[in-house]
């Protein structure tokens, strides 16, 4: 479904991605793990066209998308919950979800909304509240729900567990699994390597802009290098 090949990205003089390649197959959860500054978020930002790669390509459903503008890429069927959640604080929960559905036919809106509310009942309770007044966990749910409102083929999640209490983190990961089991393909960027690898079919370990290790989620969990570097053993 998504194929990233030999991606090179520069920020000014800094070589941030040094030839990243990865693949996401339909129906999978694929995770990118790694420390701060490894290039995980940059990879996602490049996929959605917020950053232009100097070299390499991004192919989505057989089509090169790395030369398109962000809104055009999103319209191909990609939904994203960005790093730091980025809900629109002065808009209501409902308005945030409506913006997620910006390019959907209005006739589908109610159905999509019911689906998202079934995944996140809390959002239904708070639909008229300003997004800025939600708790961190609720904002994450909203960011996820907003991404799903476009009924994307591929969902990109950037650090959904960041800054959340452990119990809430657990809930978030359960929801991600639930969304996946209902048919969504997911590319998950996480610092919480343990939780991410636990639910992922396949994982990539990034270090200073390179993929240093890849494999099935469970395999990586067993891998000694991963355990040492990311699971604190």
């Amino acid at each position: 479904m998504l194929q990233v090949e030999n991606l090179h990205v520069y920020y000014g003089g800094i070589h941030a991605l040094k030839g990243i390649s990865l693949k996401v197959e339909k129906g999978q959860i694929v995770t990118l793990i790694g420390a701060n500054g490894a290039g995980k978020t940059t990879t996602l930002r490049t996929i959605v066209g917020l950053v232009t790669p100097k070299e390499g390509s991004v192919i989505f459903n057989g089509e090169e998308i790395h030369k398109l503008k962000t809104h055009e890429i999103i319209r191909k069927g990609i939904g994203i919950s960005p790093e730091g959640r980025r809900v629109f604080p002065n808009l209501t929960v409902m308005e945030n979800l409506e913006l997620g559905a910006y390019n959907r036919p209005p006739s589908e809106f109610q159905k999509d909304l019911d689906w998202v509310f079934s995944l996140f009942p809390r959002l239904a309770e708070r639909k008229n509240q300003f997004a800025g007044t939600l708790s961190g966990g609720e904002q994450q749910m909203l960011a996820l729900g907003r991404a799903l409102m476009s009924r994307p083929n591929l969902v990109l999640l950037d650090e959904p567990s960041l800054g959340l209490a452990p119990l809430v983190v657990e809930e978030v990961f359960k929801t991600i699994q639930a969304i996946n089991s209902q048919g969504s393909t997911i590319l998950l960027v996480e610092q919480n390597a343990m939780a991410a690898l636990n639910i992922a079919h396949y994982g990539y370990v990034l270090e200073t802009g390179r993929v240093v290790l890849e494999g099935a989620g469970k395999e990586l969990l067993e891998d000694e290098r991963v355990r040492k570097a990311y699971l604190g053993e």
Binding site: P82, R86, F88, N90, L91, L99, R146
Partner: peptide, 18 residues
Amino acid sequence: KAMRAASMDFETTRLMGI
């Protein structure tokens, strides 16, 4: 709504496919 979103956050507005 898109205008109000854009007045808060350009990047996320674009990520909504706007």
